[in-house]
Design a protein around this nucleic acid. Sequence first.
DNA 1: TCTCTTCTTGAATGTTCGTTCAAGATACGC
DNA 2: GCGTATCTTGAACGAACATTCAAGAAGAGA
Lengths: 193, 193
Amino acid sequence: MRSAEFDKEKVLRSAMNAFMHKGYAKTSMQDLKKATGLHPGSIYCAFENKRGLLLAALEQYRLDRKAEFEQYFSGTQPTLDNLKAYLDNVVAECISCDSAQACLLTKALNEISDQDTEIQQIISDNLSMLQQALAEKFELAKSEKALSEQKDSDHLARYFLMGIYGLRTFAHTHPEAKVLEQLAEQLYADICA
Amino acid sequence: MRSAEFDKEKVLRSAMNAFMHKGYAKTSMQDLKKATGLHPGSIYCAFENKRGLLLAALEQYRLDRKAEFEQYFSGTQPTLDNLKAYLDNVVAECISCDSAQACLLTKALNEISDQDTEIQQIISDNLSMLQQALAEKFELAKSEKALSEQKDSDHLARYFLMGIYGLRTFAHTHPEAKVLEQLAEQLYADICA
DNA sequence: TCTCTTCTTGAATGTTCGTTCAAGATACGC
DNA sequence: GCGTATCTTGAACGAACATTCAAGAAGAGA
């Protein structure tokens, strides 16, 4: 026996970055080779093909984001404060990173959309999971009496997610902190109102 | 002398559709030939290359959308009603069309982003124009006493646009009329509140 | 009707792409 | 320390790509 020499998570995160910056179609195997340090043969051995690498990268992205999300709600602060912090982090990401630091899920969703129903389904499922997780947080906020019982948590989660999508796209044309922060502020206010 | 045989607007709208459905990178010249009915030579003669065709298509898209926008505000109804109608139309587009009927501008913005600063600039400028046009409508609504003078029209325009971006992305995973209409409803309410 | 000019056509070009595979390298079991 | 199973390497492959161009088709002017 002999085990593989590369760190799978590291490779997948490099691939994620490559896909996020150039998009799936424009990222060539040569780009992936440069990004991951793996030779084509190894990539094909480990992930079957370019599409398999994208699938694995999407799964890694899901795990990373899930861990990140849960970290935001692990403390003892009021749930709504955690939600605001989470939103502020989205804004910070939009500003700080190189301009193309979008979410891999939405980036891939926009690009692949109709052409690959399986990937489309995976992405939709992932985003639905995030939506579900958000809805649970809104339920939690209601139980903390920080949010009116009248509110529909599912609707709030959808609206919140819609806002995040919008923010990310908006950031492409207006990467100015002040403007994005103001938008996030209103989004949060409208949800808590 | 002999004039060209094809209808430039028709060709550009066909190209627009092709680019919107498959994205720029994935749309091959063969696809464009099929979509436009033009042979490669003619395309290169008229638009220099594939990128030139995208530029021309973007310009045509801008003109079409500008005309569409102005039509929504040509009547004598209150401006806010027109805005709501405009928003409802966005939602209707998200639902009715084949799932990939996004906005060419945002689609291209998401895909090309960093790789072509000239196209990035053109798209940003176009979206800024729409934002500016929206801000003027909010100003108009204020003068009609339908909106508080306290409100910042520029901010409202940005928030409205953010919502539209978000709606379009959201529609990719939830193409259900009821959900999208509910989101649009709240967006409108939050802006007018 | 003939000629000139311009447009149209689609096969050919060189390049780049995703993918394969056989040869070489390396760690593990004995 | 040897044999072997497995991983790594990178050259090679056909396919598909954007682009070119020379030959053919067709309107305009006489």
